[in-house]
Design a binder for these strands. Sequence first.
DNA 1: CGTCAAGTGTCAGTGGCTGACACTATCCTC
DNA 2: GAGGATAGTGTCAGCCACTGACACTTGACG
Lengths: 227, 227
Amino acid sequence: MTVEQQPIASTGASTGASTGGLRELKKQRTRDALLRVALELFTTKGYEQTTVDEIADAVDVSQRTFFRYFANKEAVVFAAQDTVEWHFVDALRERPPAEGPFTAMRRAALSAWDSIEERLSPVVPVTLYMRTYQVIESTPALLAIHLRRSAELEEHVARLIAEREGLDIDADPRPRVAVAAFTGVMRVAGGLWGQGGDPSVAAIRELTAGYLDHLGPALADDWREPA
Amino acid sequence: MTVEQQPIASTGASTGASTGGLRELKKQRTRDALLRVALELFTTKGYEQTTVDEIADAVDVSQRTFFRYFANKEAVVFAAQDTVEWHFVDALRERPPAEGPFTAMRRAALSAWDSIEERLSPVVPVTLYMRTYQVIESTPALLAIHLRRSAELEEHVARLIAEREGLDIDADPRPRVAVAAFTGVMRVAGGLWGQGGDPSVAAIRELTAGYLDHLGPALADDWREPA
DNA sequence: CGTCAAGTGTCAGTGGCTGACACTATCCTC
DNA sequence: GAGGATAGTGTCAGCCACTGACACTTGACG
């Protein structure tokens, strides 16, 4: 699985090209190679079954070098996830101020899924990301970290919502509470999608939309009316 | 910090005494000693600054023995948390069927805090547990695991709610959605309590109650009315 | 071209965790 | 109460993630 250095010109954008020095370019290539090889290995033989040595060997660098590019083994897994999450935040920032908080979050999530491909593919093929997400959901150690990262994102989003509504986040509990409820539902959808059989973007988009619709009814204390 | 074996009679209940053989008793004592020494060290010098060797040495057993009692270093931390969580589940089971799902969860949480002391103190002093919880909230690695455990608990609670309401959990999304929103809010309260200055049971109880009250208003899309 | 700095490999070491195996202590039976 | 079955423990060797130190190589730039 060795990844040979390709001719300089053909590198496809990648993360953030910065200035075009040869040094910078090689770094970019190494990072890309490590990222893709790692995800490929994780999705085929499993996260815990893959050692850092294997990844490094496949890219012909030392283990030490791997750790200079990624703070730890998990960091590789969440490199793509990071892009996806910021994509959602960006989408939320673009919602018109007239929309209420919940509507804004809902529409941001859906529109983010619609345009995820363009944003993600320079970093990593979308299908590889999808498979990676399934690995996250099914590997306890990764799921744990994913949830903590989600909690951090949640805090970030709560501040954004507070700002939107012109509220002091430490005085008014509603931003955090609303966001907590929202991301709670998102997580349920994500979890079920991870177990379900359809690993497409469309599938998670629809699942998300459906579950969000049930939040209002679910909080009513009387469930005699069917969902 | 060596913990010497006390005379047989004076052992205070502990986890689950089972039959009174000498073997069993020694095991119980070792486990207890490991648990308390570990929590004491974690809360004083920090989780990551404490090595398993230190804990084992303090109890005069080998590192290997530590790992025979606890699957890993984290398991010690969550031994007490486990008791607390099951206490909530038990409280939920005791709510009258007439109560709606959300009301039942809310009251179960509050009543669980009211009676946590009796349930917890045989395992570990309550103040030690409180300090441990703060360690969890402030140690990224532990927070991650805590969140994953919460997600598991959440699934369990969702099944309970579905059962209560006579619903098929795979057909009706409301149980999972309601529980996700509920525990999302609980988590926000827990997080803020961890940062705040008052490490008492009363403090988290009140914080929880207050935040749950805001869930309804927070989901309304119009926040012009103050909370 | 030569100097400087950035990037890399090697090495040694720490900490969490596991399997194997021999040893010791309780238990249970005769 | 001796003696064998069995549970629990210590020791040892080893894997893997990760880190600091240091020497070496290679692109950057005057």
